[in-house]
Structure formats: structure tokens, C-alpha cells
């Protein structure tokens, strides 16, 4: 005879399962390849003797490669697939028709995406920051920004995976068109792009002005994404409660 599953237990169960489903060799290798590029750049920064301001160059490099590409794409691949894959292939029913609340399923899926994405982003970014050899400041700033970025992007993409079929394609559309194009046009629009916050953290901690994007204080740049994360997870749980399961 079964009894209901406690929320904490449910989070653990969903987390454990989805990590196994998400970690395929192909995905890990492909995403590590992306990070290797970053390492090569960092090495070049270190070896180069013609740079006027190596620190500034490094920050710009991490901004462009790390926080426009690596962090959002890695988070998208895993968070979009976390519940989105289950939903599309019809296995979501095995998590849905259970004596568990909805929110622990969403939180477990988010944590699974985060658990897989963090090592694949923070570690390569951190190593690259050390390779660049421009001081510990860059390491700390990069790690903090990557952490915030992975948490918030993952939450938003978990929600997206429950809302849309082909969520990964829409996610790419968001990253390229919204964050890469439309958000550049105005500060109000820029505040609606997650990338503005990760790069604000980077810019503030390193005390360097980056072009475009209105910057916000480090405190806000951490607090606002956390609020966005919570709201996205809340909406995802509500969506899981009301959606139709195949």
C-alpha cells in the first residue's frame, strides 16, 4: 500500500532520475568543446604581450563568449530538456500520476538541470579565468556571474519546456533575437534580458564599463534573477498542475 511522497523526497527522486536522463555523452562532449574554445582564448590572453589592457580584454572576452553563448546555451540544452523531453516523448506521466505535489517535481527538474549545467559552465569558465592570469578578481566575478546565470536561465527554460513544443528552438530564438538583438536597443528592453544581469555582475566586480546594456548594481543583479527564478518555478508548477498529459 502506498502513501504520499514527502516534497523533499520527491525533489530527490526527480533530481536523481533526470540527471541520468540528461547526461548523454554526446551532449557533454559537444558542450565541453565550446568551453575548450574559451580556454584557448584565455591562453592567448596570457601568452600575448601586445595587449594594452589584458584585464579589460579578458572581461570583454568572458562577457562575449561566456555569458552570451556558453551559459545560456548550456542551461538551455539541459533545462529545456529536463521536463520538455519527458513531455514530448510521453514519459511525463510517470512523474505526474504519482502521490507527489507538483512543485517538488519542478524544483527537482530545475535542480537536475542546474547540477548538470554548473560543472559544465563554472568549471571551464573558472579554469579559463585562471589561465588568463589577470588576477583572482576575474575568477570570482566569473564564478558568481555564471552561478547566477545558470540558476536563472535554467528556471526560465524549465518553464519554457513545459509551455512550448520545440522549446529549445524558441530558446535559441530568445537568446539570439531578444538578448542578442532587440535588447540592445533600449535600457528598458535590456532590463528584460537576463544577460544584462550576468554582465552587470561581471562589469561591477571588475570595475569595467561594458558597451551597451544599462548596468545595475551587483546587489540588484543578483537579487532580480533570484526573484525571476522563483517566479519562473512557481509558474512552471502551476503549468504542470493544469496542463494535459499524454
Amino acid at each position: 500500500m502506498s502513501a504520499s511522497v514527502s516534497p523533499l523526497r520527491a525533489i530527490g527522486l526527480v533530481h536523481g532520475l533526470l540527471i541520468r536522463q540528461l547526461l548523454t555523452r554526446g551532449r557533454i562532449l559537444a558542450l565541453l568543446a565550446l568551453s575548450v574554445l574559451l580556454g584557448v582564448v584565455s591562453l592567448s590572453v596570457r601568452l600575448s604581450d601586445t595587449l594594452e589592457n589584458p584585464l579589460r580584454s579578458s572581461v570583454e572576452i568572458f562577457d562575449v563568449v561566456g555569458f552570451t553563448l556558453v551559459v545560456p546555451i548550456v542551461a538551455l540544452v539541459f533545462a529545456g530538456a529536463a521536463l520538455g523531453d519527458s513531455r514530448e516523448d510521453g514519459t511525463l506521466v510517470y512523474l505526474w500520476l504519482r502521490p507527489m505535489d507538483r512543485w517538488p517535481v519542478v524544483v527537482g527538474a530545475w535542480l537536475a538541470a542546474v547540477s548538470v549545467s554548473l560543472p559544465l559552465t563554472v568549471v571551464p569558465l573558472g579554469i579559463s579565468a585562471m589561465i588568463a592570469g589577470v588576477g583572482e578578481g576575474l575568477l570570482m566575478a566569473t564564478v558568481l556571474a555564471a552561478l547566477v546565470g545558470v540558476l536563472v536561465y535554467s528556471a526560465v527554460f524549465v518553464l519554457l519546456g513545459l509551455l512550448l513544443k520545440n522549446s529549445i528552438i524558441w530558446g535559441i530564438g530568445y537568446i539570439l533575437i531578444w538578448e542578442g538583438l532587440i535588447a540592445q536597443f533600449g535600457s528598458a528592453l535590456g532590463k528584460a534580458a537576463l544577460r544584462g544581469y550576468t554582465r552587470s555582475i561581471l562589469a561591477n566586480r571588475m570595475d569595467i564599463d561594458l558597451d551597451g546594456f544599462s548596468e545595475v548594481s551587483t546587489a540588484s543583479a543578483v537579487a532580480i534573477p533570484i526573484v525571476v527564478t522563483i517566479v519562473a518555478l512557481f509558474l512552471a508548477a502551476a503549468r504542470l498542475r493544469t496542463m494535459e498529459i499524454d
Binding site: L37, V40, V41, S44, V45, S48, L51, S57, S58, E60, I61, V64, V65, T68, L69
Partner: peptide, 10 residues
């Protein structure tokens, strides 16, 4: 991006 930062940055 890789090429961009290599040429402009480094």
C-alpha cells in the same frame, strides 16, 4: 565569437 575575441582581444 572565438575568432572575434582572438582577433580583436588578443
Amino acid at each position: 565569437f572565438f575568432v572575434e575575441v582572438m582577433v580583436n582581444g588578443v
